[in-house]
């Protein structure tokens, strides 16, 4: 598929990954919510950067920062973290 479009494979793996996390942390919904919050913040900052076109010299939350936040959240859940790394560009 063209690089500008999300392929069904990418969408499906994202869906099953989100489901996996949701199920893994059924007893700790606050961890799952924190994970959603990290992704939400990342997306929001990316949009803000796009809108300001970097004029303020800010690049928003980087993927490295997202990864380290998720890493501290998923402590002891190495499989989830490894899988998360597969979604990140230049991981």
């Amino acid at each position: 598929p063209p690089a500008s479009e999300t392929s069904p494979v990418e969408f499906d793996s994202a869906i099953s990954y989100v489901n996996k996390i949701k199920n893994r942390f059924l007893d700790h919904p606050e961890i799952y919510r924190a994970f959603l919050e990290i992704l939400h913040t990342y997306q929001k900052e990316q949009l803000e950067v796009k809108e300001s076109r970097g004029s303020r010299g800010s690049s928003g939350m980087t993927e490295d920062e997202v990864f380290s936040k998720v890493a501290s959240l998923f402590k002891g859940q190495e499989d989830l973290l490894a899988e998360f790394g597969q979604f990140l560009p230049d991981a």
């Binding site: 690089a3 990418e10 869906i15 949701k22 992704l39 979604f87």
Partner: peptide, 27 residues
Amino acid sequence: SYDFTPLDSSAVYVLSSMARRRRASQS
């Protein structure tokens, strides 16, 4: 079954966009 809230869907969207950019940067 997939019982997704809007927040869940937004996480799916963010993850699949990341994966798309990863593919774009690799090709």
